[in-house]
């Protein structure tokens, strides 16, 4: 436990993570100060900046991998896509609980937004993984536990989105989406653990100890960039969900006394 905590502390205090901490600080500042533009644009621009720098360093500065050669550079987009897809699905999960316990539709819009962004990242993850697998493993696709679990994860959340589209009443829709999202979240621990539970083609998670320092830095940089861009996506998508909900709401009526 202590070694886990000290390991976590070492990861969190690494210099490259200032991208994340500064990003969150800027986000908090923008929310508080209420500038003329929407607050999420600050993290959007910040994420885009670091994605540019991260990709440039990944292509030109990071060393090639000892065995995978240049192809190892795909790690800097593949791994962040995996991490952040799971983070975004976690946001959907927490928002689903938020709605079911509070009844506020704002949470429901966050579920709608995060599920969609999560599916986009998950789709990107599968395509990048396929491109990575061809030169390294010698196949575009194989039904190994990790790949299968990642595909099922995406299909499940597509199912949640489809289910959502099929329910008309806003409150019912929110409840159904929330319940479906919580159950669908089961896929995230399964996908994460799949490489440990079952013998698979996919390698296990790397740890800071199993990765070259420059590679680690570029990967973290890209991961923060993916996260910031995803926060921007979710916020933009949330506003869309909000606008849709406002549009479909009936004109406010005089509520009779005594009725709920």
């Amino acid at each position: 436990m202590m070694s886990f905590l000290s390991g976590l502390w070492a990861i969190l205090t690494e210099p490259v993570n200032f991208i994340g901490w500064l990003g969150f600080a800027m986000m908090a500042g923008a929310i508080r100060m209420k500038p003329k533009f929407a607050w999420e644009h600050t993290v959007g621009v910040w994420g885009l900046l670091w994605l540019t720098i991260g990709c440039a360093l990944g292509l030109g500065w990071a060393p090639k991998e000892a065995m995978m050669g240049e192809v190892g550079r795909i790690l800097y987009v593949h791994v962040p896509a995996a991490w952040i897809a799971m983070v975004v699905f976690t946001i959907a999960f927490v928002s689903a609980l938020g709605y079911l316990f509070s009844g506020r539709l704002g949470w429901d819009w966050a579920v709608e937004a995060a599920c969609e962004v999560g599916v986009v990242l998950n789709g990107l993850l599968l395509v990048l993984g396929s491109i990575f697998a061809k030169p390294t493993w010698n196949t575009w696709w194989t039904w190994d536990p990790r790949l299968t679990a990642s595909l099922v994860m995406m299909l499940t959340f597509i199912g949640v989105i489809l289910l959502r589209g099929a329910v008309r009443d806003p409150n019912r829709r929110a409840t159904w989406t929330g319940v479906a999202t919580i159950v669908a979240y089961l896929n995230i621990p399964i996908t994460y653990m799949s490489v440990r539970w079952w013998a698979s083609m996919h390698q296990q998670q790397s740890t800071p100890a199993t990765m070259n320092d420059e590679m680690k830095m570029v990967m973290r940089m890209c991961a923060w960039a993916f996260l910031m861009i995803s926060i921007w996506f979710i916020a933009r998508r949330w506003r869309l969900a909000q606008a849709n909900a406002m549009a479909e709401m009936p004109e406010p009526l005089e509520i009779p006394k005594g009725a709920r």
Binding site: P63, K64, E65, A66, M67, M68, G72, L75, T136, W137, N138, T139, T142, M201, Q203, Q204, Q205, S206, T207, T210, M211, N212, E214, M215
Partner: peptide, 10 residues
């Protein structure tokens, strides 16, 4: 199919 480890080195 070749299985790569989770070690990434220069």
């Amino acid at each position: 199919m070749v299985k790569h480890s989770n070690e990434y080195k220069a």
